[in-house]
Design a protein around this nucleic acid. Structure first.
Lengths: 145, 145
DNA sequence: CCATATGATTAGGTTGCCGAATCATATGGG
DNA sequence: CCCATATGATTCGGCAACCTAATCATATGG
C-alpha cells in the first residue's frame, strides 16, 4: 500500500507522452517530418508569419525556428521570402506541398490516435479527451486558446 | 472542420507528457533527483539488482544505467557492490537514504498529481486514470505487469 | 545621421538518450 | 587445462532538441 512514484499520474503521463511522441515520429518519418514541425505547418495554414512570431507562438527560441525552417524548406514545405516592407523580416509561407504534408501529418496523427484508443469504449474515449483537454488548458499548453 | 494535428490525442499527450515531466523534475530537483531516477529507486525497493537487469526492466541501455547510478550514488541513494558469486556483476542496493528519497519522490509525484487534477471532478479523475492505465498497459509501458 | 532596437542567423553548450568498442570475468568444449 | 566465446559494466563518440550569447542586417526615433 505504500504510494509509489510509478503509480502517479505524473509518471504515467510522462511515460505515455514520450512513447506517444516516438510513435508519432515514426509515422511522420516517411513524410520527412518530425513532430516539432507540425505546429509550424499548422500555424502557417492561416497567414504567412515572421520567424519571431512563429517562435513566440509555439514557445521556442528563434534559433530553433531557424533550424526547423531549414528542415521544412528542405522538404519543400515552406518558403522564406524577405518582407519588402521590413527587409529584416523573413515571411514564412506554406507551399502547396506544405499544405499536403500538413494534411498527411494530420492523418498520421489520427492513425496514432486510433491505435491508442483502440482498447477503449467510446464513452471512455470522449471522457479521456475532455479530461486531457481540461488539464492542458488549465496548464496553459494549448496554442490557440 | 479540417482535422488538425494539434487536435489529435497524440499531439496533446506528447505536449502534456513533456510539460508534466518538467514539472515533476522541478519538484524533484531539491531532492537531488530527476524523473528518470525514480523507476530505479522503486525497482530497488524489492531486492538488489544487477545493472543489466535494471537496464532491461526500465527500458534503457546499460550505459544509461551507469550514468544514473553514478548520480544516485552521488546523492547517497544507492550502493554498488561487486557480486562475490559473479565478480563481473555490480549488485545495486538502496541505502536508507535512498529509501527516504524514494518516499519523498512519491510525495512530490502526488503533489504534481494534485495540481494536474485540481480542475477535474472526482469521477473525471478516476475515468482519466483508468483510461490512461488501460492505454499504457496496451502499449506495454508499465514496469510491473 | 547616429544610437538603439529588432529580426534572423551562427556558434557553442547542455541533457538525455543511443550504439560500438573496451575491459574484466565466467563458462563450456576440445 | 586453456582457449573461444559470452556476459556485465564501463567508456567514448554521436545525435536530437533545446538553450544563450554573439553577430549581422535593417529600421526607427531623437
Amino acid at each position: 500500500m505504500t504510494s509509489q512514484v510509478t503509480d502517479s499520474l505524473a509518471f504515467l503521463l510522462s511515460k505515455l507522452g514520450q512513447a506517444t511522441a516516438e510513435r508519432f515520429a515514426e509515422r511522420l518519418a516517411p513524410l520527412g517530418l518530425r513532430p516539432r514541425h507540425c505546429a509550424v505547418l499548422q500555424l502557417l495554414e492561416g497567414a504567412p508569419l515572421g520567424q519571431l512570431a512563429l517562435a513566440r507562438t509555439i514557445g521556442v527560441t528563434p534559433s530553433v525556428v531557424v533550424d526547423m525552417l531549414d528542415e521544412l524548406e528542405g522538404v519543400g514545405a515552406v518558403r522564406r521570402t524577405r518582407d519588402t516592407a521590413d527587409r529584416r523580416r523573413q515571411l514564412v509561407e506554406l507551399t502547396d506541398e506544405g499544405r499536403e504534408l500538413s494534411l498527411s501529418a494530420a492523418r498520421a496523427a489520427a492513425q496514432v490516435d486510433a491505435e491508442l484508443l483502440s482498447g477503449l469504449a467510446p464513452d471512455q474515449r470522449s471522457a479521456l479527451r475532455r479530461a486531457l483537454t481540461a488539464i492542458a488548458t488549465a496548464q496553459d499548453l494549448l496554442p490557440r486558446g
